[in-house]
């Protein structure tokens, strides 16, 4: 009963949002950024021709990743959390949504998981476009030897870790956007919280693993390099660090408490 309602509600979320910026942002954002980077590398390829393939990939993927953790991912998550909820705020449809013969849990969970899905989709596309455009570069500019190194696995893991690191922010922002119909409050709070997260993480504050808005930056920090002489350097990613575990715990707790608030909430 709850599961069926969840699936129906999830499909309805897609149906409703497929013509909104919220949905298209998840596709266009990675496409545009990777395309711009592609153009940049294509036009400024001279200095990079001598680089080893691994360094090329690190520069290419790193250009995105460097802004991803500090700004791009938190802001995108804040925007997605807002956009899935604002569909109902704008149309004044909460009351009709909650007077349908579908359990409140299904409606609430479907919306939450749809937001989660959009973040996942966006990050997956970042991986695919990074790999795709990288390989395309080696085709159109054969002096850039992107094809001699493979980091699909590493990138996928890294982005999956980024996805996990966004869970804490997403759950908090989702709840804020559920209750406030305007854009400025959740956006403002999220922005300030992100700035604080960036500052505390970059200052190396010892407790910032407890603070969700620091998690995306932490997820990209401390990539341990295996630098034994003679071996090819390797990037090892530890998926479940303590900041990620804290993020998952926070998201579960906020999701559950959010449900009880929705249950008790009277619809205006």
């Amino acid at each position: 009963m709850v599961m069926k309602g969840f699936i129906l509600s999830f499909r309805s979320e897609f149906f409703k949002s497929r013509k909104t910026l919220g949905f298209w942002a998840a596709i266009l954002l990675p496409l545009l950024i990777c395309l711009l980077l592609f153009i940049g590398f294509y036009t400024k390829s001279e200095g990079m021709a001598s680089m080893p393939p691994m360094m090329l990939w690190l520069r290419f993927a790193g250009a995105i990743l460097s802004v991803m953790g500090s700004l791009l991912l938190p802001m995108f998550v804040i925007f997605i959390a807002y956009s899935v909820n604002s569909i109902e705020h704008k149309a004044d449809t909460w009351k009709s949504l909650f007077s349908l013969p579908i359990s409140r849990l299904s409606v609430y969970a479907a919306k939450y998981f749809y937001a989660l899905f959009l973040v996942f989709l966006c990050l997956t596309l970042f991986v695919l476009f990074t790999i795709g455009f990288g390989n395309l570069l080696s085709l159109v500019k054969p002096e850039l030897r992107f094809d001699n190194y493979h980091m699909e696995d590493t990138l996928a893991k890294l982005y999956f870790k980024l996805f996990l690191s966004s869970l804490g922010i997403l759950s908090i922002q989702f709840l804020l956007s559920l209750f406030w119909s305007d854009f400025l409050k959740p956006m403002g709070i999220g922005f300030v919280a992100t700035i604080i997260g960036v500052i505390t993480a970059s200052k190396g504050w010892e407790y910032c693993y407890l603070y969700p808005y620091s998690h995306p930056i932490l997820a990209l920090k401390l990539l341990p390099h295996n630098t034994n002489k003679g071996e090819t350097p390797q990037i090892v990613i530890d998926l479940f660090t303590k900041d990620i575990l804290v993020g998952i715990t926070i998201s579960v707790l906020v999701f559950i408490s959010g449900y009880f608030i929705v249950l008790k909430k009277s619809i205006k």
Partner: peptide, 12 residues
Amino acid sequence: ALIEQPAIYQHL
């Protein structure tokens, strides 16, 4: 049910 002004998605 129809409550107050109808709840309609304007972009659809």
